[in-house]
Amino acid sequence: LYSSFNTHNMHEIGYSLNRQFGPEPWTLYQGLPLYSFVDNHDVMRIATQLTDEKHLPLINALMFAMPGVPSVYYGSEWGIEGFKEPGSDDALRPRVKPEDLKQGELYQYIAKLSEVRKHSQALKDGGYREIRTEQDIIAFEREAGEERMIFALNAGSEEYTLHFDARAGKGTDLLTGEEKDFGGGLLIPPYQAMIIQPER
């Protein structure tokens, strides 16, 4: 994931998600609740891997919205950095004291992602359907039963208007509480992710 963010190439992510979880019968892991992470105890910390810190919330939003069971490696909710060094993983596994860490914006954002996912059957168990993939844009739909969620992400520095077959023209961005009217296209500001629950 991180390399696609660094090179502004959402095409690679879109291709992988569609190949693994798409609606076609030949996809690899359709319906399987696989373990998802952006970093762990064996690899360089995600805050170190990304070249643009504005992508840190976005890569977490993608992880919580895509199929799978998201996992946040301890400390990454605070944006802790760490290089993987030859012969030692100490930098990846620092000793931290909760009182030394502040519950900043990233922490609050990940907590919100967790809360939204916890209350959404579509995000936990729903299928995956690609809506659009562009250089800086990825958008997909998750659906389970009567619940449908639209995820849209803009990793670029310019706003983007996403045109797609919405099946409904309005909805609520569950991350911000804002009402979104996308009947004429969904405006996605730069460096922003949305999880939209469309009106029925």
Rank of each mutant, 00 (worst) to 15 (best):
G82M: 09
F83G: 11
F83K: 14
F83W: 14
K84F: 11
K84A: 15
E85R: 15
P86I: 00
G87C: 01
D89S: 15
D89P: 06
D89R: 13
D90L: 07
D90W: 00
D90S: 10
A91S: 14
R93F: 01
R93K: 12
R93V: 04
P94E: 04
P94W: 01
R95S: 09
R95Q: 05
V96M: 15
K97R: 12
P98E: 11
D100C: 08
L101F: 00
L101H: 00
K102V: 04
K102N: 10
K102W: 02
Q103C: 05
Q103G: 01
Q103F: 06
Q103W: 07
G104S: 10
E105Q: 10
E105W: 06
L106Y: 02
L106Q: 06
Y107P: 03
Y107Q: 03
Y109R: 04
I110V: 08
A111I: 01
K112V: 03
K112N: 10
K112F: 02
L113P: 12
S114K: 15
S114W: 11
S114R: 14
E115F: 04
E115C: 05
R117W: 11
R117H: 07
R117I: 07
K118I: 00
K118L: 12
H119Y: 03
S120A: 02
Q121F: 08
Q121V: 08
Q121W: 10
A122C: 02
L123T: 03
L123Q: 05
L123R: 06
K124G: 11
K124Y: 03
D125T: 07
